[in-house]
Computed example of a mutant assay.
Amino acid sequence: MRAETAARPAIRVRGLEKAYGQQAVLRGVDFEVARGSIFALLGSNGAGKTTTIKILATLLRADAGTAEVNGFDVTTQPGQVRESISLTGQFAAVDGILSGRENLVLLAKLRHLDDPGGTADDLLARFSLTDAATRRVSTYSGGMRRRLDIAMSLIGNSAVVFLDEPTAGLDPEARIEVWHLVKELAGSGTTVLLTTQYLEEAEQLADRIAILHQGRIIANGTLAELKELLPPAQIEYVEKQPTLEEIFLAVIGDETHAQGAR
Results as ranks from 00 to 15, higher is better:
112 H>N: 15
13 V>A: 12
180 H>F: 10
7 A>M: 12
214 Q>H: 11
5 T>W: 06
50 T>S: 05
252 I>T: 10
94 V>N: 09
243 T>R: 02
144 M>G: 08
214 Q>M: 11
106 L>Y: 07
148 L>G: 03
112 H>F: 12
18 K>H: 13
159 A>R: 07
2 R>S: 15
127 F>R: 02
211 I>C: 10
87 L>R: 08
177 E>I: 03
129 L>E: 06
240 K>A: 15
222 T>E: 04
81 V>M: 04
166 P>H: 04
171 D>H: 12
251 V>S: 12
163 L>C: 03
105 V>E: 08
34 A>W: 01
40 A>G: 12
79 G>N: 13
19 A>L: 09
68 E>H: 15
235 I>Q: 15
128 S>W: 09
47 A>S: 15
94 V>W: 11
11 I>E: 01
110 L>A: 04
35 R>H: 04
79 G>F: 13
254 D>T: 08
116 P>W: 14
68 E>L: 11
205 L>M: 00
246 E>M: 00
81 V>R: 05
17 E>V: 11
145 R>E: 04
111 R>N: 13
151 A>W: 05
92 A>E: 02
249 L>W: 08
32 E>F: 08
54 K>I: 00
192 V>W: 08
257 H>A: 15
159 A>N: 06
42 L>C: 09
49 K>Q: 02
73 D>A: 07
37 S>C: 13
186 A>L: 06
205 L>H: 00
157 N>Y: 13
118 G>R: 13
6 A>R: 14
5 T>S: 10
170 L>I: 07
159 A>P: 01
215 G>Q: 01
185 L>G: 03
25 V>R: 15
30 D>W: 09
36 G>S: 14
115 D>I: 14
254 D>M: 15
162 F>Q: 03
236 E>F: 13
94 V>P: 03
33 V>D: 11
16 L>D: 06
112 H>M: 12
196 T>F: 11
153 S>N: 04
112 H>L: 12
138 S>F: 10
151 A>P: 04
4 E>L: 12
229 L>N: 14
195 T>F: 03
196 T>E: 05
53 I>E: 00
119 T>D: 03
125 A>D: 10
139 T>N: 12
67 A>M: 02
68 E>A: 07
170 L>F: 08
234 Q>T: 14
220 N>E: 11
75 T>K: 11
228 E>P: 00
173 E>I: 13
99 S>C: 12
36 G>Y: 14
168 A>G: 06
205 L>S: 03
24 A>C: 02
83 E>R: 02
245 E>M: 05
109 K>F: 14
129 L>Q: 00
138 S>P: 00
237 Y>A: 11
103 N>S: 14
206 A>D: 09
113 L>I: 10
198 Y>V: 04
19 A>C: 09
188 S>F: 05
198 Y>D: 06
